[in-house]
Simulated scan of single mutants.
Amino acid sequence: MASKHPRIEGYAIISREGMIAEADGSFPESIKIPADQKFYQDSLERASAVANGRHSAEGGPKEAARKRIRVTRRVHRIVHDPHNPNAILWNPASASFDEAWQKLGIEDGTLAVVGGTDVFGLFLTIGYDVFYLTRARASVPHGRPVFPGVGHGMAPEEPLRKAGLVLKSTRVLDAATDTVVEEWGRA
């Protein structure tokens, strides 16, 4: 089966410091904004599949039913997930993204990348078509960054710019918490 490269969309909500999680990997309640959760879950409904790492997933009642690529170094190449018939386990060090997408059995469509840090960084090199960066005003000073290097002198948007993305639009998701979503896309 010949597989077309999917449209790749990234989704992350970050703290003021550019963090997506606490240092222990837990999701901070302070950046769990209902308006962003709705935007996120609605967006995932339109996706053909989701990509995530070991410590991240989108949650919600439909999580197990979604086609999924779980990025891991614990397997060689690509294998079916023994715990989820809708998922594959992919080691990007030993197999290409196109091979993983083909193994998932989807002809075309949209892949929603939902984290964590290393997965977001990996897809910077594979190539996002769009990245939705939601900015919460809450503080998570010593957490896990959205992209490798963020928070150590690097702003969250810097890796997006280096990957050839430009800020296309910004809109308010929740005025009460001053939460905005930025759409970063190809120039």
Rank of each mutant, 00 (worst) to 15 (best):
P85V: 06
V75N: 05
R135Q: 13
R46S: 15
T117M: 09
N52D: 13
P148C: 12
N86W: 00
R73C: 04
H5K: 11
I20D: 02
S3H: 06
I69M: 10
A187I: 06
F27N: 01
Q102C: 13
T170H: 09
L160T: 00
D118S: 14
D98P: 07
F147V: 04
M154C: 11
R16L: 11
T177Y: 06
E9L: 00
G121L: 03
R68N: 11
L173E: 10
R66H: 08
P159R: 04
F27Q: 06
L111R: 05
E29H: 12
D36W: 03
G121Y: 01
R186K: 14
L89Q: 05
K162F: 00
A65H: 08
F120I: 10
A93Y: 08
L44Q: 02
L104M: 05
W184D: 00
M19E: 05
S94F: 08
R144W: 04
D129E: 10
E29D: 13
K38T: 08
Y40E: 05
R144T: 12
H5Q: 00
G53H: 08
T110M: 13
A100F: 07
E182A: 07
H80G: 12
G121V: 01
G115A: 09
I78S: 10
L167N: 11
A187M: 09
V140G: 03
V146K: 06
A155H: 14
H142F: 12
E58M: 15
P85C: 00
E63W: 15
D24R: 03
M154P: 05
G60R: 02
G10L: 00
I78K: 06
T179K: 10
R135F: 06
Q102R: 15
L160S: 02
R46K: 15
I33F: 04
G116V: 11
L160M: 04
M1K: 11
A21E: 01
L160K: 01
K168N: 11
R46V: 11
A49Q: 03
N84D: 12
H76R: 14
E182Y: 06
G151A: 05
E58L: 15
R171T: 13
T177E: 13
G105N: 04
V130K: 07
R16G: 01
L104C: 08
K32N: 14
F123D: 10
H5R: 11
Q41D: 10
A51T: 04
I78Y: 02
I13T: 00
I78N: 01
P148F: 10
V166M: 12
R70L: 12
G153S: 09
A65C: 05
I33D: 13
R54Q: 14
K32S: 13
T125F: 08
V166P: 02
V114R: 09
G116F: 10
L111T: 04
A100H: 06
N52F: 13
G109Q: 10
W101I: 08
H55T: 15
R186A: 07
R46T: 14
F131P: 04
L122I: 03
G18M: 02
L160E: 01
V50Y: 11
